[in-house]
């Protein structure tokens, strides 16, 4: 669910983000609703970054969290969306909306699977039982590329075009904030840091290093 803040707040974000960044790095306590801005080394907003918060106290995923639906469709010889975030154990639908067949695969160590050639109107599904990332390709179409990020927490979000992601309902207390992006230059393309959440909410700016964009990047 996405909680919309006021416009004023949004527009003021760029101005204050630089000031706040040091607060983030010092792991100061933050309010319940958490807004995370992801920027690259040049200060540009980064879309398709997945942010997730894992409270220090272990949180069990409830069945409701896995309800979905989680869809990775194939349309116009491309995956949609480019990045999909699902909680661990969720089942993702792979509907083929093209007239051609696709052969979706993932060789990711955590969630390898193959959906051999299937045609239009057919929807396959895969359940992702392991937290991690599945890089999706199509054996027929080399250019097709997408990622499914599987997180072991109910608190996750994906940055929009302005590089912003909002986490609305968070428990108070210490937590680990993880940021993942498919082109991030880091082990497993993710980075994490400790945060403390509280009711009053807070804003976090995360700076990441990206590989040069390649063909197929959304």
């Amino acid at each position: 669910m996405v909680f919309q803040r006021t416009n004023l707040f949004q527009s003021a974000l760029w101005l204050v983000s630089a000031l706040c960044s040091w607060l983030v790095s010092s792991a100061s306590a933050i309010a319940g609703p958490l807004q995370i801005s992801v920027v690259d080394g040049e200060g540009q907003a980064v879309e398709h970054a997945v942010v997730s918060v894992e409270p220090a106290a272990a949180v069990k995923l409830k069945p409701g969290d896995l309800r979905g639906p989680f869809v990775m469709s194939q349309r116009n010889i491309a995956f949609e969306p480019f990045v999909l975030v699902v909680p661990k154990g969720a089942t993702v639908q792979f509907p083929n909306m093209d007239r051609v067949n696709h052969h979706v695969y993932s060789f990711s160590p955590t969630n390898p699977f193959q959906l051999p050639l299937y045609g239009r109107g057919i929807t396959r599904s895969v359940t992702f039982g392991q937290a991690g990332t599945a890089a999706l390709g199509c054996n027929i179409h080399d250019k097709m590329r997408a990622y499914i990020r599987v997180v072991d927490t109910p608190y996750y979000a994906k940055t929009d075009r302005s590089g912003v992601a909002n986490l609305v309902t968070l428990p108070d207390g210490a937590a680990t904030l993880r940021v993942w992006h498919p082109a991030m230059m880091a082990q497993g393309q993710e980075m994490s840091q400790s945060v403390t959440t509280n009711r009053s909410g807070n804003r976090v700016v995360v700076t990441i290093r990206l590989r040069p964009a390649r063909a197929g990047d959304m």
Partner: peptide, 13 residues
């Protein structure tokens, strides 16, 4: 004379 070709799946593996 060297040629390097990535093995993409779809990221280089």
């Amino acid at each position: 004379s060297v040629v390097v070709a990535p093995v993409l799946a779809p990221d280089p593996i």
